[in-house]
């Protein structure tokens, strides 16, 4: 009854089906995504502390550096490259408007986190927004412009919440 060092699995990333893919079990999801050319997800610490590697796994934001590629069998994954629905298109416009990014390295994680915030369909004040993004490190912006952007995105979606 031995475990395996390589495993063959199926999963979906950004609506693209991947079948019978063999992955080394020790490789984390962030590295795996980057190895297949989805380099929009960035690695910052491999400890789960900086948030740069955040992706959406089965509808939930997770740290891709703390998921083993062996654990994604049957899963549906979304990375920054796949955030092209109407909601996120608008969010990106709002981010750009507020200059809610400078170097862009934290942006993919920030956007996934923002998507989860908006999916909660709650009106949040600035302090609450700051709490929601408290796990995403940004060294460039000082966070204010990101809070501005998320505040506007929530406002923008408020009609959707009231439906």
């Amino acid at each position: 009854m031995l475990g395996s060092k390589k495993i063959t699995i199926n999963f979906i990333i950004n609506d693209e089906k991947f079948n019978d893919i063999t992955v080394p079990v020790r490789q984390h999801l962030g590295d795996f995504l980057r190895s297949i050319g989805l380099t929009g997800t960035h690695i910052g610490c491999e400890q789960g502390a900086c948030g740069a590697c955040t992706v959406e796994l089965d509808g939930k934001a997770v740290r891709s550096c703390l998921i083993l590629s062996s654990q994604i069998n049957g899963s549906v994954i979304k990375t920054v490259e796949g955030l092209d629905d109407t909601l996120m298109k608008k969010v990106k416009e709002i981010f750009l408007k507020h200059n809610a990014l400078q170097c862009g390295f934290c942006s993919s994680g920030m956007l996934i986190t923002t998507k989860e915030i908006l999916n909660k369909k709650k009106k949040l004040n600035r302090e609450q927004i700051r709490t929601e993004i408290s796990g995403n490190y940004c060294r460039c912006t000082g966070y204010q412009s990101i809070v501005d952007a998320i505040e506007e995105a929530i406002e923008d979606n408020i009609q959707g919440y009231l439906k």
Binding site: V80, E81, L96, L101, G104, F105, S107
Partner: peptide
């Protein structure tokens, strides 16, 4: 003006050394 050149970072299109 907004930085149109920064849009690609929001699309995962940054080109960093490790990429």
């Amino acid at each position: 003006l907004t930085r149109d050149g920064a849009i690609r970072h929001l699309e995962g299109g940054g080109k960093f050394v490790d990429d």
